[in-house]
């Protein structure tokens, strides 16, 4: 089978196997898997509201998936998408609150740019540390996540906090709110999805059609060879981290502009980490990541409906874990397969 075909077959087969294995768990807890999966399907695609929810949930996942996937392609394991997303959302919000005077045509793109710069700058710290001191990005980005989390919960309770109850910032200016594509009752399907898809296409072009993309991939494949070939490694590490962070920052900003309309302390909800699994399922390919994110989004939205069938939401975490396991395990199998062939040839 060609590698392109594999890339499609593996995730699809994984999903089917995962659903089959999970159905055993559902039987074990005394429920009917067919009823549960019907509810799952209905909850994800059964109504306008369901589809809108799937798209809303998938939008940030596409972007964090792209962030992590892009990092992987350049040989960087960016675990910091979570923190970069929070920073993007927070600084984007600070900007968006104060630009009520600006017409939407400028305010919307500018807010996105500010959020992207915030995420990029934050990620570049880890990139810079790696390039200059060799500090591993896994460690530094994890640390930066904590800084972002606690900084944001301070910001949202003290300097930017408003009202009673939830720690939250004031609403962003109307001119910076993303226009909804469709409104179903209280749910607004945001136009953020369009931005996310454009971002995926842009990343695809950068990676596949530009010299810089080639350099970044080269750095990822084999830094020593790339350096020998005249590619400036340290510069590329910082750049790759910055682009990855910009995507995560955009994810956060779009959540604010399209969904919550204000900054909340617990806004990210682990979506930065979800980016890792989505990048893996999407095989680090920008278009694959869009589908992986939609899969994740529909599983999660559907799982809310599944609760009505008496199946706890956690089942979907099992499904997710098995999919990831199979996709990752498949890589092991394939690597072994390729190695064996090479051994035979030599």
């Amino acid at each position: 089978m060609s590698s392109k075909l594999w890339a499609f077959v593996v995730p699809i087969v994984s999903v089917i196997i995962a659903l089959l294995i999970s159905s055993i768990v559902i039987v074990l807890i005394g429920q009917n898997p067919i009823v549960a999966y019907t509810a799952l399907f209905r909850g994800a695609f059964g109504s306008k509201l369901a589809i809108a929810s799937v798209v809303i949930k998938s939008t940030p996942l596409i972007l964090t998936g792209l962030a992590v996937g892009f990092g992987f392609r350049a040989g960087l394991f960016n675990i910091g998408a979570e923190g970069q997303m929070v920073m993007g959302a927070m600084i984007g919000t600070a900007f968006a609150i104060n630009v009520a005077w600006m017409p939407a045509v400028f305010a919307i793109p500018l807010t996105m740019v500010v959020g992207m710069i915030a995420g990029a700058g934050y990620a570049a710290i880890a990139g810079f540390l790696k390039a200059k001191t060799g500090a591993h990005e896994v460690v530094t980005t994890i640390m930066l996540n904590w800084i972002a989390e606690y900084l944001s919960s301070y910001v949202v309770t003290v300097p930017m906090g408003v009202g009673f109850g939830t720690p939250k910032s004031p609403e962003i200016a109307n001119s910076t709110k993303l226009p909804p594509l469709i409104t179903v009752q209280a749910t607004e399907l945001t136009s953020g999805i369009i931005v996310a898809i454009i971002a995926a296409i842009v990343i695809y072009i950068i990676l596949e059609k530009t010299t810089k993309g080639y350099e970044l991939k080269g750095t990822g494949f084999n830094p020593y060879a790339a350096e020998y070939g005249g590619i400036k490694i340290s510069q590329n590490i910082v750049l790759a981290m910055a682009i990855s962070g910009a995507l995560a920052g955009l994810a956060g900003t779009l959540e604010v502009m399209g969904v919550h309309h204000r900054f909340l302390g617990t806004l990210s909800g682990g979506k930065g980490f979800d980016g890792i699994s989505i990048a893996l399922i999407g095989q680090n390919h920008p278009i694959g990541i869009i589908f992986a994110a939609l899969l994740m989004g529909s599983l999660r939205t559907g799982s809310n409906e599944m609760q009505f069938a008496g199946v706890p939401k956690h089942i979907i975490l099992i499904v997710q874990a098995i999919i990831i396991f199979l996709v990752a395990a498949d890589r092991i199998v394939r690597t072994m397969f390729i190695r064996k062939k090479k051994v035979k040839v030599s």
Binding site: T187, H260, R300, T301, N304, Q307, K313
Partner: peptide, 18 residues
């Protein structure tokens, strides 16, 4: 009586609507 559990902030509106 039934209960729906939410994963994240973005679930609140769809879950309450449902």
């Amino acid at each position: 009586a039934q209960v729906i559990q939410s994963y994240e902030q973005a679930d609140y509106i769809p879950n309450l609507t449902k």
